[in-house]
Amino acid sequence: MNVATLSYPTEATLPTISQALPLIADYLNTQTGAQGTHISKATRLSGGAIQENWLLQVHQQGGTMDGDNRWVLRTDAPSGVAASMTRAQEFAVLRCAFDAGAKVPEPLLLCSDPDVAGREFFIMQALDGTASGPQLTRDTSLDPQRAALCHELGVSLANLHRIAPPHPQLGFLPEPAADHAQACISTYRNYLDTLNDGFPVLEWGLRWCELNRPQPMVPCLIHRDYRTGNYMVADGQLSGILDWEFAGWGDPREDIGWLTARCWRFAGPDREAGGVGALDDFLSGYNSVSDLQIDRPTLTYWQVMAHLRWAIIALQQAERYLSGGEDSLELGLTGRMLPELEQEILLLTGVPL
């Protein structure tokens, strides 16, 4: 990958975002042409061990962003580990998605100068609403708007899938596999081979996917975590898609299978479109932009793949906990989800229980 390497201070000398606010304000003045920038409030948002997100209340006098603004500053945590994407790369993906018509927080400014905050960061528009999966799938006040929300989710995903390789702004992404499904199967199988314990249901699922995999499709940009919990909804409408660090070239049907997999429906297990609504409403939105048609056997295939992938992630999270590397109850509980995922894999592949 053609990626520039930045040299950051060590954690011991790295300033916090709160400490860097005066320099950040000066940087915003320079970039927007403002005569004055006042950051009245900077609030650390919850979640994210690898990245930090700060909600900034900013007033600018003059310049291109004159007036009151609500922005999010996204950067690496001081003690963060190597991530799948740098902030510059994530900014580029967001910019491409925004320009393609996907509903994402508008990326505004990228700062790669370590003298400003000690680390790379970018500024994007703040979104209103909630991303809580349990709330979105349980809230009855959303019922009259669920069809329209699912349609919006379909339109946004189809717009993202319009982005195809090669792309001048996304040269850092790994080359797409000739057969995305087979590449996923090989990756998951290779991980299982590193474990001391056996997982016959997962091995069964992988072999079933290998024998039943559909013909490969022309690759496009996929989100790889497009699900309820990773998008914001305000007043029943989609405000934007979050968490882009896993994006890459792949099969668009993987995103559809991931969104519709039972494991991501939370309190709405009978609503196939992410627990928030009907599959037909989601597909009507998707097909208003894309000619891709996904039949039931193909959708089932990618739902099996979704449960396999989530099962592998659950094993990895549990290993982080059991090895003593991270004392996190969330990681430990994630590992205990495995039986539910295995049961769904068997049901989807037609194994009588």
Rank of each mutant, 00 (worst) to 15 (best):
V104Y: 02
I163F: 03
D113R: 10
A126C: 13
V93Q: 03
E342M: 15
Q35T: 15
P339I: 07
A42Y: 02
L338P: 10
V72I: 14
E152T: 05
T130R: 08
S323T: 12
S141V: 02
P15E: 03
D68R: 15
A267K: 12
T75W: 15
D197V: 10
G277P: 04
R271C: 06
E11P: 13
A314E: 06
A100C: 04
S112I: 11
A158Q: 13
L157H: 08
A318Y: 14
N53I: 01
Q237I: 14
I24P: 03
L202M: 05
G335N: 02
T130M: 03
G118A: 04
A158W: 07
R262L: 14
V351L: 11
N190D: 12
Y8M: 06
E11C: 11
T16M: 01
G335T: 13
R265Y: 14
R119I: 08
L195N: 06
F121V: 10
S141Q: 02
Q303T: 09
N2L: 12
D68E: 14
L28R: 04
I163Q: 00
H180G: 09
A158K: 02
R253W: 11
P107F: 04
I163K: 01
H151N: 08
H151P: 08
E175N: 10
Y188L: 08
T75S: 11
W310S: 09
R162M: 06
G324K: 04
W244K: 07
E90Q: 14
W54A: 02
G240I: 10
